[in-house]
Design a protein around this nucleic acid. Sequence first.
DNA 1: CGGTCAATTGAATAGAGTCAAGCGTAGTGG
DNA 2: CCACTACGCTTGACTCTATTCAATTGACCG
Lengths: 263, 263
Amino acid sequence: MAAPHDNPHSARYERRVLARLTSFASLDEQEKAVLASLAHSPRQLQRGERIRAQDDAPTYLHLLVDGWAASAVGLPDGSRQLNALCLPGDVLGLPSLALAEPIDEIVALSTVVVLEMPVDSIGRLFAESPRLAALLFLVSQEERALAMERLAQMGQASARARLAALFLRLAERMAQLEDDTSGRFALPLTQRDMGDLIGVSAVHLNATLKWLRGEGVIKLKNRELEILDFELLREIADLPSWRRARPAWLPPHGTKPGAGAGD
Amino acid sequence: MAAPHDNPHSARYERRVLARLTSFASLDEQEKAVLASLAHSPRQLQRGERIRAQDDAPTYLHLLVDGWAASAVGLPDGSRQLNALCLPGDVLGLPSLALAEPIDEIVALSTVVVLEMPVDSIGRLFAESPRLAALLFLVSQEERALAMERLAQMGQASARARLAALFLRLAERMAQLEDDTSGRFALPLTQRDMGDLIGVSAVHLNATLKWLRGEGVIKLKNRELEILDFELLREIADLPSWRRARPAWLPPHGTKPGAGAGD
DNA sequence: CGGTCAATTGAATAGAGTCAAGCGTAGTGG
DNA sequence: CCACTACGCTTGACTCTATTCAATTGACCG
């Protein structure tokens, strides 16, 4: 029922969006077609705009195609916590599927392009392609694992370690996304953004940044980050390594629901 | 009240384990049967034992049938962060499915009973019952949303608010689990455990607890917690309310695509 | 009855927050 | 082209929350 259709971002889409899923397992053409049929209506938003507000009913998911976004929990007093950075390829809004009102809002941190996905796409996905559904499940579990890691650091680690961890994971993610392991990339975040991400004030973030620069670990100028010493950064962040699974239990290509249990 | 230890296979299973899934949508008999076929081999473990260690390859999931457990990230220096409490009905080990080596370990906080689920049960679940798979997906998203909430609090809120939030969410969860809204329940956690949960030292947790007691919000004695003033507790925790979705997009009962819906 | 573990309290310290001011750069409009 | 403005970055001084270390008490167990 899904007619594959091109969209204006197809080359980028292939590389960025599919890369996220295919890091766990391969997709066949039909699966790519199903995926493409789920997302429509590209929208562009500017920094600071809300992709989904905290009080919107969760009727749409969003597929981030370009730019940076973040899931944020805003507090009455104006402070906010950025729960997770979202980079191209991420599906935005999944956790709120479980809730009647979303607990987070999704804000654009740079100019972004998103595609809209009605929530019932998810139902179709589970019904039409168990393998794709399982892959989406896995991506979501990976994000949950990342959140656990951040939570653990938030409770135990110093601001230095947390900032180092942010840069480290970001560099890993960018390496995958842009196929560039130089450790140099554009970082469209203000110091306030970074502070909100690791849970420190902008002032203290600045001090921490200064310290990292002084240690010769990073260079950050004009929104361009360069990691000078991965070794040392890893040591400061004190994180375990992070290797994606290649699960053997996924439903094979072309599986339709009922294939195993139909009687 | 402390539940007596009896053989945990049918009545308790029905009420506790299935309640988690059916809070989103109903299950039919066949779905219950599929679920029951996935979990085997009850094991009992004592407080402090690892249900799954941090370096075990993730070959099994575990279904918690009785007792309390927690997902923990241990640090070299002996400190640890408890990422999430696990109560009866929880499926343990999902986030690690995405990783080659788990980042967390799962420890028993009280005497627990778990069932083993080989990871390929998940594959079967997606292939045989899209509706069940979607429900598991939802439960997992709910846990992720909870983690986001905790992360936000960790970054922004005081120890008081975090402890209040812990008790509040716990009371809500226990109310669902034990069908008892009195706000009184057994709390098999040491102060160190609670500290690890909200990310403060045991010493400071004790002081915070003392403050909460002084305000007349809670009573805690002999591992038994009683919430005296829900109103005030909610105010201190400063959390948004938390209403589960009743999604309309779930694949209908039955394994064949397009099979009739109906509750 | 000592031995271990949990809870409790006190004192000194450090990490991070807030407030406040100064600086740099980019953008806007006369 | 310059003045004016806005925003983000940088720094210093003061405050306070939470940490660490240390010692004491209480509870349970063999």
